[in-house]
């Protein structure tokens, strides 16, 4: 379970998060949608402290942090229990596909090298890239890189995986393969998945819970049928109308 309590964050004068309160249940697939600049990425990154919120509380199961008082050790602990999939993949450029996955296992989790390698290969095969184990990131397509990014996160067996627009940087023809892998992940793993995405169809299919953000607040949240098909708030309707034809969401 992740819980946000009254999270605030500003970049200078720009108030980006204006009191976020919500609970994401353990094992759920939660999709965060909202217009550009609404603070989705900032919220996601505040969980693993890549962005440190100004005030509020972040609760991850037994870890209960007041963000203002969180120490280096607290932050390290929360990072060991989470993993992230980035919009721009961020694979370690000096490591092969296999080493990218092994790195966290061997260095952070202290898994013996042989076991780490075996586990890394297993996850590489899971995303359909067993044959690319020895390839460096620059030798792989965006879609392949992102699938390895997902494998890297999965291999750590974290409590939570944070996805920040995992398909937004991809060429349209590569989006499908990554969404396919993500669907498989949502069915097979039982860690909590938080996904920021503009793929409304994907959200409708796999989400247990949808959060709509705008202007640094959560405008509404609930099951996907409710938020995506029968939104109550005007801002949500307006946002969705850009993605779905009116006919579709009246059904």
């Amino acid at each position: 379970m992740i819980e946000f309590r009254n999270i605030h964050k500003a970049f200078g004068e720009n108030k980006v998060l204006k009191g976020i309160n919500c609970t994401i249940p353990t094992g759920s697939v939660t999709v965060i949608v909202g217009p550009s600049g609404s603070g989705k990425t900032t919220l996601l990154r505040s969980v693993n402290f890549l962005e440190r919120a100004d005030s509020g509380e972040i609760i991850l199961d037994d870890i209960h942090l007041d963000v203002e008082k969180a120490t280096k050790a607290d932050i390290h602990k929360i990072r060991q229990r989470t993993a992230m999939v980035f919009q721009t993949y961020n694979l370690f450029k000096n490591k092969t596909a296999l080493e990218n996955i092994m790195e966290g296992l061997a260095i952070v989790r202290k898994v013996p090298k042989a076991a780490a390698k075996e586990k890394a290969l297993h996850f590489l095969e899971k995303v359909g890239l067993g044959h690319k184990a020895a390839a460096y990131p620059h030798e792989l397509s965006g879609g392949q890189q992102q699938r390895i990014g997902i494998a890297r996160a999965l291999a750590l067996n974290p409590d939570v995986i944070l996805f920040d627009e995992p398909t937004s940087a991809l060429d349209p023809e590569l989006v499908g393969e990554v969404l396919e892998v993500m669907k498989k992940v949502t069915q097979e793993v039982n860690c909590t998945l938080v996904v920021v995405t503009h793929e409304i169809a994907f959200a409708r299919e796999v989400a247990d819970h949808v959060i709509f953000m705008d202007g640094g607040v959560i405008v509404e949240q609930g099951p996907p049928q409710e938020i995506l098909n029968h939104p109550k708030e005007d801002r949500t309707k307006q946002f969705l109308s850009r993605y779905i034809s009116l006919v579709e969401y009246n059904i």
């Binding site: 693993n48 890549l50 390290h76 990072r79 961020n90 370690f92 952070v108 750590l156």
Partner: peptide, 24 residues
Amino acid sequence: GQMEAALSVGMTWFQGFYRIIFRQ
């Protein structure tokens, strides 16, 4: 993003610097 990825898998700043950033 390289350091962010290192931190996100649970490395310390020093591990990320030495293993990823410095080598590149």
